[in-house]
């Protein structure tokens, strides 16, 4: 699966897609593959305010549970509740319909430190 060029990525294996002042956040294809079959996704309530590095939820596979951390700060404006009933979407379409939350960016400058698709792919290659 390819990594969209217009997304930004973190070394914690999240992706961020920015449209105006709203950032959509998900986990990468690499992350879902490492986790394996995902069975639960816990997401925050709309309105919750997140600082960079805050744990905003968790993704649980058959064999492990992992916290998910906010790569940028802001308020949660939407959460992908479809994942409650069909967590497997995270495995099948991690960069699209498997998105986790949308937040209203409080500081667009926080995006500057994130990785490009190329840099992220190089990072996961080097990790293995």
């Amino acid at each position: 699966m390819s990594y969209p060029e217009n997304y930004r990525y973190t070394k914690e294996h999240e992706w961020i897609a920015v449209e105006g002042a709203v950032a959509t956040i998900g986990i990468t294809d690499h992350a879902q593959a490492e986790l394996g079959d995902i069975v639960y996704v816990d997401l925050p309530a709309v309105g919750k305010t997140l600082a960079v590095g805050d744990s905003f939820g968790s993704v649980e596979s058959v064999k492990a549970v992992s916290d998910v951390y906010a790569p940028v700060s802001g308020a949660v404006v939407d959460a992908n509740t479809a994942l409650n009933d069909e967590p497997g979407i995270l495995n099948s379409d991690p960069h699209g319909s498997g998105w986790l939350i949308k937040i209203s960016l409080s500081d667009a400058a926080e995006l500057d430190g994130l990785l490009s698709a190329t840099a992220y792919e190089e990072y996961i290659q080097a990790e293995h």
Binding site: E34, S66, D67
Partner: peptide, 9 residues
Amino acid sequence: MGVVFPTPA
């Protein structure tokens, strides 16, 4: 995310 990925060999 806080995944504890397996330690690379």
